[in-house]
Computed example of a mutant assay.
Amino acid sequence: MDSILNAPFVHDLVTLFKPALFNLYFLLLAVPFGFPLAVLLALGKNSKNKLLSIPASTYVYAFRGSPLFIQFFMFYAITLALNPGVWKPLGISWLMIHPLFIGPFVLVLNTGAYAAEIFYGALRTIPKGEIEAARAVGMSKWQEFRTAVWPNMLRLAWPAYTNEVVFLFHSTTLVYFTMPVINEQKDLLNKAGELFEKDYNLFLHFSAAALYFLVISIVIFFVFNLIYKRLTRHLNVDVSLKIKPNYIR
């Protein structure tokens, strides 16, 4: 047993467990806040009211058109320029410039824009017949949205949104590349780089980090696949997660 635990790869897996929790922390904060932001932006962009559609479209274009790497730099610079010392009496000066705050905050803004475009595309492809049927029976705008628009939008957008969440998880590696590392708050890629600097064993350390990303990504796919099954339970289609390659068609 001791020989297994002392194996270099297993040792790396144990060492990288805590850093993996930081990547999960960023993801688990970004998704719950980014999802409603994306829905609001998609509805705003799809609105016929220019006061809603223009700001929403501008926001989506700005965040989708600029690299996430630069967005982290810009927001970190902005928080420093705001002179956090002014906020010391409120006790939030450290929070404003802390990576554990700025990281999820920027990820929420970024995924909100990308997911908004996904939901907007789904809104544009909702079957018109279902909306017309809802109006024909005298439904209010809210009832129409709740019974016809919302479920169809989620069902159509969910596969693409699942990919967005996985990409978002991978993007958490940029947090500590753009902001200072405080104490031992290192994520997977940052810690793997630190291990690499000790013995220059590139394949060993980054393979262990990649395994964490692979396993967590599979878990995300599995959980979101269960949700997709729920969304499509009324359809006679097979939406089960297939990990085994299909060599013969």
Rank of each mutant, 00 (worst) to 15 (best):
F105N: 01
T173K: 13
H98I: 06
L82A: 14
S140H: 04
Y76S: 02
L43M: 10
I97M: 01
L241D: 13
P55Q: 06
Y212I: 11
K186H: 09
F101W: 15
F119H: 02
L235S: 09
F221N: 10
D2A: 10
V39M: 14
I97D: 09
L41H: 08
G103L: 15
W87R: 00
V181P: 02
V215T: 01
N6P: 07
E184Y: 11
S217W: 03
D238C: 10
L195E: 11
L231N: 00
K48T: 12
L123Q: 03
G65C: 14
N83F: 02
Y200I: 04
V60N: 08
L195C: 07
V239C: 13
N201C: 00
I220V: 12
T173Y: 07
A20E: 03
T58Q: 01
F63Y: 10
E197T: 08
L95I: 12
E132F: 15
F145T: 03
A30T: 08
N225H: 05
F73P: 01
Y247N: 09
L43R: 06
P55H: 01
N49H: 10
V10W: 13
K128P: 02
A136Q: 07
L90S: 01
F145V: 07
N236S: 12
I182S: 01
T172H: 10
I216L: 08
F196C: 03
N246F: 09
Y25R: 02
A7K: 06
N236G: 11
V108W: 01
L109W: 08
S207V: 13
L226K: 15
M153E: 04
E184V: 09
L21H: 10
F169S: 06
I227A: 15
E184H: 14
G91Y: 02
I243S: 08
F221H: 12
F22C: 04
T178M: 15
Y61P: 00
A133W: 06
L95V: 14
P104G: 02
A136H: 00
L168N: 08
K128V: 06
A56R: 05
V10F: 15
V108Y: 06
A122P: 01
T111K: 03
R230I: 10
L188R: 07
R64F: 00
S57R: 09
I4L: 15
H170T: 07
Q185G: 00
E197C: 01
Q71P: 03
F17N: 06
P180N: 12
L204I: 03
F101A: 00
L52Y: 05
K191I: 01
A148G: 14
F221R: 10
T58S: 11
V39C: 04
Y212W: 08
V31I: 15
A210I: 11
I70E: 00
W150K: 07
M153L: 04
F119G: 00
A42V: 02
M139I: 14
L204N: 13
V108S: 04
A116Y: 04
A122R: 12
F101D: 03
P99I: 00
P180V: 11
P104L: 13
E130G: 07
L156C: 00
Y212T: 03
L21V: 09
P151A: 05
M139N: 11
R233F: 09
I97T: 15
E164N: 14
V108H: 06
K141D: 13
L189Y: 05
A113V: 06
L5K: 12
